[in-house]
Design a protein around this nucleic acid. Structure first.
Lengths: 103, 103
DNA sequence: TGGCTACTTGACAAAATAGCCAAATATTCT
DNA sequence: AGAATATTTGGCTATTTTGTCAAGTAGCCA
């Protein structure tokens, strides 16, 4: 059971970085190579590569080499739903805060 | 949009620790006071309190003081589903690995 | 009031993480 | 083979996180 919590924490820790979330959001539209993702987040290529290896180690993405490129894609089926759900929750919170400031 | 990713990362980062996940799993059955949760994870009370404040800051749990106790409970509606889903994914992976070693 | 229990906060050391640069690897093209 | 492109890895520093102990706050009961 504790082994489960460790692995689960591993997944969440991997999800816990803005750049990684930006990349994952992009991957919702389909696979992307590292250079695509680098262009998206604007960090050093080596940094992007390390972020991707964190996601891969957690089993959130898969990679496949084709030619000189390596393409990453989502593997954790339920991720999309939860990403969408937390986004909604956050939007609701932001809206609530904005409303509070209004008065 | 990036503000969303920041807030989202904040939530995931908060979820990314085994002790916090153990406590959250316990909270699925209903609210618990800090001492209950401390007994569960077996860390110093101050450490448990800090873990809980991380969860609270991320908006994952709510707290309510009643008498000398403070009771924490889940607030992020979609969390349960995702916790269950990642658990399943991990179990599947562990099973697959076990099967691989069998041969 | 004083003492007890429940919890939080501050200070601090140890470990993990994020970012960059430079170097290594692998594949394709000439 | 040699050059060019795409990606990973190692080394390094700065920052963040985790955990403990000690001290502080708050509610309850004698």
């Amino acid at each position: 059971m504790n082994q489960i919590r460790e692995a689960q924490a591993h997944i969440f820790k991997a999800l816990g970085h803005p750049s990684r979330l930006i990349m994952l959001a992009a991957l919702r539209d389909g696979e992307k190579c590292v250079c695509d993702l680098q262009a998206l987040v604007g960090l050093d290529m080596s940094t992007v590569s390390k972020h991707l290896s964190v996601l891969h180690a957690a089993g959130i993405v898969d990679k496949e080499k084709r030619g000189t490129n390596i393409y990453y894609r989502l593997t954790l089926c339920c991720l999309e739903t939860f990403l969408a759900c937390t986004e909604d929750a956050i939007r609701r919170r932001l809206a609530a805060k904005a409303k509070l400031l209004e008065d």
